[in-house]
Each structure stands twice: as structure tokens, then as C-alpha cells.
Design a protein around this nucleic acid. Sequence first.
DNA 1: AACGGGTTTGAGAACGTTCTCATCTATTTG
DNA 2: CAAATAGATGAGAACGTTCTCAAACCCGTT
Lengths: 356, 356
Amino acid sequence: MSSSPRPGATRSTLAEVAAAAGVSVATAARALGSYGSVRPETADRVVEAARRLRYSRNGLARSMVTGRTHTLGAVVADIENPFFARAMRAFSDVAGQAGCQVLLSNTDEDVGSECAAVEVLQRRRVDGMLVAPASPVEVAHLHRVHRSGTPLVLLDRALPGLTADSVVIDNVLAGRLATEPLLAAGHRRIAMVTSADLDGPDDPRATPGLGRVVGYRQALRVAGVDVDDALVSTGDFRTASAEQRTHALLAGPHPPTALVTTDSSMTLGALRAVHARGLRIPDDVSLVGIDDADWLPVLDPPVSVVDQPAAQLGALAAGLLLRRLAEPGAPPVIRTLPVTLISRGSVGPPGLPGDH
Amino acid sequence: MSSSPRPGATRSTLAEVAAAAGVSVATAARALGSYGSVRPETADRVVEAARRLRYSRNGLARSMVTGRTHTLGAVVADIENPFFARAMRAFSDVAGQAGCQVLLSNTDEDVGSECAAVEVLQRRRVDGMLVAPASPVEVAHLHRVHRSGTPLVLLDRALPGLTADSVVIDNVLAGRLATEPLLAAGHRRIAMVTSADLDGPDDPRATPGLGRVVGYRQALRVAGVDVDDALVSTGDFRTASAEQRTHALLAGPHPPTALVTTDSSMTLGALRAVHARGLRIPDDVSLVGIDDADWLPVLDPPVSVVDQPAAQLGALAAGLLLRRLAEPGAPPVIRTLPVTLISRGSVGPPGLPGDH
DNA sequence: AACGGGTTTGAGAACGTTCTCATCTATTTG
DNA sequence: CAAATAGATGAGAACGTTCTCAAACCCGTT
């Protein structure tokens, strides 16, 4: 079998199918849409004509009149990030089962891109929208979406003042859970490598990163350890940034004996730096990450993490969106999913300073 | 700022904006669409009215008449797979720059899902479509798409008989490049862990997996090593499958001294098995993967791979699609991107059999 | 033979744009 | 001062469906 495109290929319309079957457009529509009632033989004739003419229903025209596009928008930082990849995979699986497709946008944590993406999705009349907001502050566009009546669900961070459905984890708890095993092992100089921006608002729910820093500080305080802000290394969300900042931390005069990394990019960056410096985990430096990755168990030693259920988050987000499609008046909910510490082998007792 | 959704929120239309601005629909359309000619003051009045009424242009209606949806479809096996994630990220970046959005579908390598996805995209009148075909045999649906005139670009495998634009790598070469360093190190029993189905057609271009097996065999033959088909472990594309099959290979009476894995899921699976058996790389078993992953360099030892330029593949695919949108008559091209061996530290001399 | 109830069908409006064409106004030119 | 020209505007068709409503039809009952 071989095929070539027909450049002047003009698609056949319902009217043409109807004419070919010798019925009216209305009847053809009924036969093909399987609604209303139509005589079986007539239906067969229509279906046959449709097949012969290679009819493909125009979804745009359909959406035009039904008001439903069966499309959900998804606006996230970066689909290449395994966390979002997993969440989006689950999101689109659940959406797909309900007959919806997903229009995907990457923002690279840029509010401008997010704004534009949301606008475009709005114009395309998506039935609903999932957003993992880049900023907890610049949210006017999200309020607009919400007010316009488009179902909206927030992923990974709830926004104070925006009563939209949200699916989040307890980031403060995640930060605490990651820090505690290090404290328990005797560490006192524990650094945090994060992409959070500490200069933002104080609400720990505002951004995942911020909440995790708060949790980290809580854990330190509870253990009676002084919080040294020089040990909290902030920067952008890229692996390269984490790598470079970990180098800086470890090269300092009074380096940390343990690291907490707040997402898998940070973890990878930290590992690269540790590797490059010839340090061993956990002998020279201990490590606990937040956000699991499938390759962390095959490291030597395997890396302990606080796992966040990315797939569940995505699936739940889709579920909430679909529910709201069905009953727009339902009260908005914020669902918090549990995080769990997975102890592997990257935590040990602190080595003597300058041991390596 | 706080907001709540207006349940009965009915969107304002161009007609309403026109009425509010005291002009005709045609003029309002011109003012907002910045085409034709309209007096500046009139335009201002329209823009102001649009702002006041929170007008958002209905993209569906627009597409209806222009015949363009500014949407590209993408049908791949699994967005969670880093290879596809990288390719899709690049694809949607390039598409986005050209003002197109991406409608994404996962097929899990299932032809039925692929078929359905392609159908839906067709109905939605996407401007073009990228498909990474699940099967080199069942391709009737792809021929239909191609014949219908929808621009189509094939990712990762070219289909004999389908003269569509394709973006591929030289899989035979990849298989050879992965095998050669192992042969050079002295290995004679080299196993391959792949997701390819060996019972398919013989054309090595048909599926990536098959091509890689062919390359592997070529390399062996050139080196004068007998090809033992028991060493080629086939199965599905999941990590768990690769893990289990690697166990089986290593538990055999005459186990391989080296492994080639044909994608990053296979590599991870193999690593898990090796890890679980307490074997060391490269002392007990050597390993070369196909498809790089960002975490492979931080393993101890770092794993050597044949890298395939996923991002470039995706970007190029988008480029070809956009080009074909502009000039539908252009002759179809097959672009083959280069693969390169990245030597790290997972290849050593073969240990004595039963050494461990 | 007339009637009633259900099924099957068709005509045509509606969805919200874009775009062609004709009209009308202001400006320039002979 | 009339005519030509360019710019600004409006009326209305078109895109391809879905869906309401009324008409036609069929069958059994009185």
C-alpha cells in the first residue's frame, strides 16, 4: 500500500453525505450522531455514504453549536520535568477516559508566558483549565479565568483569595520530613538547595518551594538548631543552577554536612556537584531530596527522598475539573495529598569537617 | 483581590461589542483583528468596548471561517518517557513560536489508541499532525490522514510506502555504535535488552527497536562473533519488563558479560536488575545504553550511551510540519539526525564467567 | 373510512466569526 | 467646480454542524 497526499483535497461535508444518501442534513446528522430516531435502513444508507465520501465530522462546527470543545487546557512550567510529566500523563489519561483531549503549554515559570497561554486557551474555549501557577503574586489572569466561568483547577499551589479547586501537597510537611532524618543522624549544618524565591509573600502555601523552606526551618528550630540563612541557596529551577550553587555551598569555609534538595532538578544538580568534587554520599555529605525519581534507587547509595504523588495529583486534578464540568455550582475544594519519606541510603552521620 | 466564578457567565460576542461601540460587526472585527482599514478613533472605541465587556474572541468561530486552527496534534507512546518528553518539549516550543498550540495524545504503543487519537485530531481539524507510529504494519489510519491532505510528519520511524515527512535517526548505526565498544573491550557474550518485536517485518527502518537489533547483529558479525538469539531479550517497553528480563539473562547458565539496552527505560530496568543482584559495573558486567538521560552521568560509574538528539528531532519535526503548512506541495523529506557515542565508565574488560 | 399515537423526516434557525462587495464620505486633482 | 480616488463603513453570505419544530407517514383501532 502506498499513498500520496491530495493537495486539493477538500473535505466532504454533512450536506454532501446527506445528498449522496438521498436524505436531509438533519437526518444524516441523526444517523451519524446516533441521537433522535432514524429508520435503520436510512441510517445504513447514510453511514455507507459517509464511508464512501470519507466523511469526517467537523468538530469545530460541532463545538460551535454544542458549546463544548471536549478540550482541557494544561499550563505547567515544563513538561520535561519528570514531576510535571507524570502529573500530566495521569491528567490526560483521566481526561481521555472522559472523552477530553489536552492542550498543553509550557511556561518555564514565566508569568508572561503563563498569561499568554491562559489567554489562548480561553479563546479556544477549552472546557476547563489546569494551571500550576508560576507566581503566587501575579495572578490577575487567573482571576479573570475564574470569573469568566471557565472551570479552573490549580496544581501544586493554592492561591489565597482565589477560591478555585486546588490539588496540592503539604509542602511544609515535605520540608520537615526531608530535614528530620538528617537531624536525627546528628547533622547540624544542613543546607537547602531550592528554586524558591524567598523575597515573595510569606504565606507558605504560596509556592511549593517556599513551603518547603518553611518546613526545613521548622524542623531545625524544633531540634534546637540555629537557622543559618546562608545555608539556604535560592536560584532558578534549572539543574545547572543547582549544581553551581551546591558547589558554592560545599566550597565555603564552613560547608554543610548535609543537603536537602527541593525538587528532582535540584537533586540532580546537587548530585552532579557532589560527584564532581569527588565526595561520597553519605560519608562526606548526606542528602535527602524532595520529589522521587525512578533512577534514584539505582544510585550508589540509593537516595532517600520525600515522595510527592505526582500521578495522583494529576489524576485528581482531572477528576475535579471533570466534576466541575458536570456540576459547575459545587463548592470549591482544596485537596491535600500525603507525602511520605522513603528512606534509602543517602543519610549517614556527619563526617568531621574537612574530613575529605 | 478575591474572585468567585459567575455561574451564569455568558460570554460577550463581537456583535455586543460592536453595538456598545456604536459600529457594525464588520468594523468591530476589523478593529479587533487589525486588518482592513478603520479610523483610529473608531478603533479605540471598539477596543475600549471590548475591554469593558471582557470580550474574548471565539477561536472556534474564527477557525471555522479561516480554515486554520493553529493547532498541531502530537501522537506519541508516552509523554512520561524522557525521550518523548524532550522531543515534545522542543516540538511545542517551535510550534508555539509560530503561534500554534499542541494537542497531545499518549498511545502506550497501542495501535488502537493511536488510531483513535489520529481520528479525533482529524475531526478537530488540526493544521498538522506528528505521529510516532506504534506499529510499522498497521498504518491504514496514517495513510488515511496523509491522503486527506492533513500535513503529517513521522517521528522516530519512517514508514515504507508512506511518503510523508519523517525525522529519524540511524537506528542500525545506533545499535552498532553501542555494541562496538563492548566488542573492543573483549566481550563475546553481549546481550541486548530491547522492546522491539522481532516477529515484525524485516525492514530495519520499520521500528527503532528492530533497527537497533540489526545494528547489534551487524557489529557482532563484523567482529566475527556468533550471533546467539537467546541473548536478544524482547518484551514490552516498560522498565519492569526490562528488569525482569535482565534478571533472566544474568541468571542463565551461561550469562552475558555485557549488556546493550535500547532505550532509557530498558537501561533503567537493566540497572535495577544488576543492582539487585549485587553486581558491579563494569567489573561484573559492562553496559552501554541507547538514549541518554540526564541522570546517567551521576551513576557510579557513569553509564556510556549512544545519544539520540531528542530535542532536535522534535524541533525539526515541528519545522517540517510548519514548512508544509506554508507550502503543501513541497516534496516530502526524510531527515536523519546523527547519533553519537558518549563514552563514560560502564565498559570494562569481561570478567571471568562466574567471577562474582 | 376516519381517527389517534408514535415514529420518521425535513426545513431552517442558531452558533460567532471572517470576508467580499457595495456604499458613503472626505480628499485630491484636472 | 466636477470628477476621480482613496479611505471608512455596513450589509450579508459563508463556514458545517446541532437542534427545535412542524409536517408527513405508518399502523392499528373504532
